[in-house]
Write a protein that binds this DNA or RNA. Structure first.
Lengths: 201, 201, 201, 201
DNA sequence: CATGAATGAGCCTTCATTCAT
DNA sequence: CATGAATGAAGGCTCATTCAT
């Protein structure tokens, strides 16, 4: 999955591309500006022409990847009529994106959380929109009667997000691939139908 | 919640305690050895008498905290007869531990994942036991008929772990407290009964 | 005897010059990077822009000094027609260089041997060429009949090198000067004519 | 070749033995007191009960090894009647000792020179005796007519010492063995008979 | 638009050494 | 005779960042 910077001066594009490539295999902290510049074929100084910070670079790259992610999600929802269908679509699209876009997954699942500056960044705003979208669908479902009305919608939101993230965590850390369709289907089944067994009567 | 090192030479105890205290408010990377030593009232060099590394210190402290966590979990399970009861107990105990032991939560939810060395550490072994315990209960429940037999037990394990972690994430990051009982009850309800609404008949 | 780095950015030149100057009076291990940087009027960090290592700095400086040494030797040989003349010239030039270039002498006679990394460095390659030059002349002399054909040329090479080095060792260690011409003449006489006394007949 | 410390309290013996063993493969600077203590099975502190210094330990071990060396030399000389015979014996015994006692060779050829404190130590006094012995024999030979009277005896001494040391240097550095008899014979032949070829007449 | 020389602050780590017990 | 806990001073090295050109 490529996510090239399509805009801006050549130097900026080169830097973002190189950084993105590095993020596929290394963690943020261990990537040095020298390494980025070297891989991009530019000088270290140029990084600070286009980014205020190393972290700013991370945020901009995340922003870029996240835009594609968000677009995919919204495309998936559009066609669906029911809330359950929409949530299924989101779960599938999320797993799919995390699976096929390693950089996105690494940043979102590993890097971003312990950085306070992230939560002040524009990148975080996008994630909030994503989370909010889920929450809105849940609320809508509870109103329309598709979903049980006696739940804390925030909690369901967290269960869904947690399920998505934890499912992807292992593959990101240990660099494995998973069967997205099966995983998405299984998660949907568990969360929507519950796991308690109802004996036949 | 304090979890002091009860064994070893005074210097080692002081170091672990001081580091633990620092971890409550700062992230690992930004804690310097000078800071640790200063807070512990020992010299920096002593750290390397007892720990091979700054990371080793992290792992040993985590290990220590996790031992208490694990003990709490097992105590909770003991009394329960049903698999569902056991899982409920684990979810509650986990949320409770993460809520009251900030250091444990911070390390496990924020710090540890992007460090490869963690996964080779003894501390990781404990987490695997924890995850394994959940998996075993799930399997047992599927066999006894308490839980639906047509699920991927690994997936349910991930949903549970993901729900726990994501629920705690926000409070860890933004330093808030939550109502553990309510959250645990809600998560249990969602996962066990499902969220789909079944109209009255 | 100065042997400044004539190429490269000013910072690199300053570092090499300062280090060279320090090597005249102190041994490598006791020279700190802070000292080098201080004497050079640059920051410590800059050292690592131009040298991978403190040792790399040593090797590059040695390389530089040795180049001049080597050049002197070759100039001395050029004019000589006989092998014996060439060897005489080498012995003289070597003693002369060691005497007048204290840094070269110190590095070659004292520092370099116990460092394994030296033998993998480019600097060592030059020394091998020097030793090889001597060996080649010896072999040539044995073929042309100037030198006895019934010797191990390697052994003679070692005797010559050993004589040169040991003669210079004391002056390097105790910081004394010697009469180069007399010493060279004496060594040549001993090695070429032997020390056994042949009574008159 | 073993050179155990036969006297003193068990702790001291253990320390010297362990250090000696370590010196066979590592250089002095890279051997830590922790390593010595660990290998000796004692605590670091004990080292300072018996030795004022790490360097003192080196000197005492060298002293011990050198005593055996010196004894071997003197035994070799004793039987010989001529000065030439004595020098031959010294050359042979020296090469032999360096070859079979790696620790002695390493210390004398590699470590000792760049340490100023060595030259103030008792160990250095022994080496001076060794060198002095050679010088005395040379002078005696020059007086009795065995050796040419028109030489600088100091220079011959240096040539002999240099030849011995340089011949052994390579095997010490690269850990190779040599044919002691052949080397000694060759060196003797070169130095005593000279290398100039005298055509038959 | 880009370079490259230089900075500066600090970090982790090492290790010989001491001393009370 | 020996331990082991603790020190302290320094040391090499990294790296994000700046700025004149």
């Amino acid at each position: 999955m490529k996510t090239p910077a399509r805009t801006g001066p050549p130097g900026k594009i080169k830097i973002m591309t190189a950084f993105s490539r590095l993020m596929e295999t290394k963690d943020f902290q261990s990537i040095t500006t020298a390494e980025i510049a070297g891989n991009a074929g530019v000088t270290e100084g140029l990084i600070y022409k286009y980014f205020t910070d190393k972290k700013d670079l991370l945020h901009q790259v995340l922003h870029q990847h996240f835009a594609a992610f968000q677009a995919g999600i919204e495309a998936g929802i559009q066609e669906k009529q029911t809330c359950i269908g929409k949530l299924e679509a989101i779960i599938f699209a999320s797993l799919d994106s995390y699976t096929h876009n390693r950089v996105l997954a690494r940043i979102l699942l590993l890097e971003v959380r312990n950085s306070l500056s992230y939560f002040e960044s524009g990148a975080y705003a996008m994630v909030k929109i994503y989370a909010r979208t889920i929450l809105d669908i849940i609320r809508e479902g509870m109103e329309t009667g598709e979903l049980r009305p006696d739940m804390d919608p925030f909690l369901l939101q967290k269960v869904i997000l947690g399920a998505i993230e934890h499912t992807c965590l292992k593959q990101v850390i240990f660099d494995k691939k998973m069967d997205v369709t099966a995983a998405a289907g299984g998660i949907v089944d568990i969360i929507f139908n519950g796991v308690k067994h109802h004996g036949c009567h």
